[in-house]
Design a protein around this nucleic acid. Sequence first.
RNA 1: GGUGACGUGGGUGAGUGGCUGAAACCACCGGUUUGCUAAACCGGCAUACUCUGAAAGGGGUAUCGCGGGUUCGAAUCCCGCCGUCACCGCCA
Length: 426
Amino acid sequence: MLELHFIRANKERVLQGLKIRNFGEQELEIINEILRLDDTRKETQTELDSLLAERNQLSKEIGGLFKQGKKEEAEAMRERVSHLKDRASKLEELLKSTIEALNEELYKVPNIPHESVPAGSAEQDNEVYKPWTGGLPQLAEGALPHWELAQKYNIFDLELGTKITGSGFPVYRGKGARLQRALISFFLDEAVKAGYEEIMPPLLVNEETARATGQLPDKEGQMYTVERDNLYLIPTAEVPLTNIYRDVILEEKDFPIKLTGYTPCFRREAGSYGAHVRGLNRVHQFDKVEIVQFQHPDKSYDTLFEMLAHVEGVLKKLELPFRILRLCGGDLGFTSALTFDFEVYSAAQQRWLEVSSVSNFETYQSNRMKLRFRDGSKATRLAHTLNGSALALARIVAALLENNQTAEGIVIPKALQSYTGFEILD
RNA sequence: GGUGACGUGGGUGAGUGGCUGAAACCACCGGUUUGCUAAACCGGCAUACUCUGAAAGGGGUAUCGCGGGUUCGAAUCCCGCCGUCACCGCCA
């Protein structure tokens, strides 16, 4: 969430930012409401603090009096303190409820977009930051979409997944399963080569963790829940990976911290059905290798572009046509300040599929997480957090299958062959 | 799942109602000394909020796993929860 003192000191900038996110006049009032609540909080706390200071002082004196055997004086003083207590407990209650209300409002405010974020209301307003300049694959007559290729080569089976679990849970088999494993290993190796520490995190997280990275309270519906144990299935490795550094104070020299991890991702994705979500285009469980960085605020945008370059390099090795979008205010994730999406061209469907999302969250997550560092002076500052997919498997597989189909089978890109152990999937 | 023990600052660990935001030691930082290193000695060393100040700084409050309670006063007493460890049971 945003820092209160930041809102206070940069009110205009905050309001401008929210406008980029298409907040109306009415909705912008939340900022005034937050500042009002914070005023109340401060006043209440100041009064309570001085009351408690008085109590502590008197209590000390009482102790002294008892020691000197001045019982009567002590008793008299006791009563005075008892009186303070009523007032104090009332203030305590007020303080507590004010803080609760304040947090509730604060949770509703999204991150302030970076100045480069274009205005816009939805997907179609995203800026093509880097178009694909090469040619697009020309497929032979009778080329198949990946879901038909899946049947032809028996590499994944959605109906079987439905039998076992429900729709959107593919079962990969044979060379299809092998291809998954190959991609995961390949992506992890690439990330490790780029200096990321490999992590294998838990796939279930608790409420506090989900809150810290921003899945709660606003994206509650996206996650599968395990109610009995009050746990959530992760929608992305970002959640456990970022939380590794929750409540941590770093030294400046620790930056950058680079983590990578492979996990399955679980998403309820309540929403549309039809051609756009056929096959692997949108599934409830998919595999993904995530990269996460913690960085000094002055360097986080350099880092963002470094991460962009990493994803780009991996896609090039896979020989897939891709383009990069800069998300507009309307499409930008709630917690992000700047996001670039990578889309891969899926030749048989003739559409671009999102395969990666690389974001800088600045201090939005670190504020919730209390991830700080010392900047040489006494003060602590919030670190910046960033993450990106490198990469999400299901749609990569869809594009790979479609673009590389030949009469002999699916051609595996060179970079992947040592991982798959075969050059043609047939 | 059962039983028992335990949860104090970066670490070890003292502290069983007021003199404890917390001894001591280690680690870390600064200094003195030193041909260099080491040793020795001196000093510093939690976080958040808040008031005050131009600032440097100074004052206050809270925090000894978390939440509640008793008390004029709680790290210390009581209750609940969570966690760790040990043993037993079950198990990939």
